[in-house]
Amino acid sequence: MSERHPIKAVLIAGPTASGKSALALELASRAGGTIINADSMQVYRDLRIITARPTPDEEARVPHSLYGHVDAAVNFSAGAWVADAAKTLEEAEADGRLPIFVGGTGLYFKALTAGLSAVPSIPAEVREDVRARLERNGVEALHAELARRDRRAAERLNLRDRTRIARALEVIEATGRSLLDWHNEGQPPLLPKNSFRAVFLAPERDELYARIDARFDAMIGAGALREVERLATRGLDPLLPAMKAHGVPALIRHLRGEHSLEEAATIGRADTRHYAKRQFTWFRHQLPEFEWVTPEAARGWLENGVRDPG
């Protein structure tokens, strides 16, 4: 790493609507940084508005990477993101820029700092067969099948968690081994201990929820419904990650006449608030090395923790 930067990278995490992107932009502008997306929904090019990706003007101010570079038809994985992030990290370092990872996807940050499990790619025919059985027989039947073949994995999963149940069954079917076993054989972290500075923005809950609600309404006003309508016309598998982005399922149901727009917005706002609550819990238990600060204290964190290059 260039002597201009005493640390290898900066990691800015936090719940949705906590002000991460603004903090990253300020730091990148001051420190000669490259902003690298660490949000699993902002990778999809189809979903700029509904996922609150940086605006074109913001992207023009400093280099941004891994935003909107994946088609919604792709089941983009954490492993694929790590491979992309490794290349971007090398490019930023070669250019003498400070890599600034920003987002709310805990698994991405854990992969950066603790490594990632080595689950092999699942053949498309296996994935399609499992999903067909899920649609035909229902999630309860699939969970029962998983319990027969991989009891340990089944016991750890919520009985209604369609995506993770299908994933665990795909892995045991394709590899003959439990997903839990693969998780124990991981890849090393991209960022070794003490090579980075990590912060988690933790707003007061009521304030955060108000910001989430206001931002969702603003996204509707900015064209999120038209964006989701274009996505819906593609007829993609509803289990794909992009099809489950917060607000997307409810807005699709509105477009089908199943909800009013206000009902869909109410569902979208509530889903986003619930997700923010899970983000607090996940980071607290899984990534204790992150420093928790309020958004108001973030500027002081910048001043004291990350020096300008010089």
Rank of each mutant, 00 (worst) to 15 (best):
T88C: 15
Y67L: 13
T113H: 00
I100L: 13
G104N: 10
L112R: 15
L98G: 04
I36Q: 13
L98H: 03
A72W: 08
V70S: 15
E91K: 01
T51E: 04
H69Y: 15
I50R: 03
Y108D: 10
G96H: 09
H69K: 15
V102Y: 06
Y108P: 05
A52H: 13
S65P: 04
I35R: 08
R45H: 13
L47A: 10
W81D: 12
D57K: 13
L107G: 09
A83C: 01
A114N: 07
A73M: 11
G96E: 04
G104M: 07
T34L: 12
V70H: 12
A60R: 11
D71I: 12
Y108F: 12
R61Y: 05
A38L: 03
S77N: 08
A92M: 03
W81M: 15
P99S: 11
G68T: 09
H64N: 02
Q42K: 03
A73W: 07
P99F: 07
I49V: 01
F109H: 12
R97K: 14
K110N: 03
A94H: 06
R53W: 00
G106I: 08
P54A: 04
L66I: 04
T55F: 11
Y108R: 10
R48A: 13
G79L: 14
V82C: 05
G68A: 06
G96P: 11
F76V: 06
G103C: 13
L89M: 01
R45V: 04
T34E: 02
A94M: 06
H64I: 03
P54D: 06
F101T: 00
D57P: 01
S65Q: 14
A73C: 09
E59Y: 06
V43G: 02
I36H: 14
S65G: 03
G96Q: 05
V70K: 13
M41V: 03
G68Y: 10
A52W: 12
D46M: 00
I35Y: 00
P99D: 09
G103R: 10
R48L: 08
A111T: 05
V74Q: 05
E91V: 03
S65F: 07
E90Q: 11
A86E: 04
S40M: 10
S77H: 12
A80R: 14
Y44S: 09
G106R: 09
A111M: 01
L47C: 04
G79R: 14
E90R: 11
I35A: 08
A85G: 09
S40I: 14
A73I: 07
T51I: 00
E59D: 02
A73F: 07
G104W: 07
L107R: 13
S77C: 13
G96M: 06
F101R: 06
T88N: 15
F109D: 12
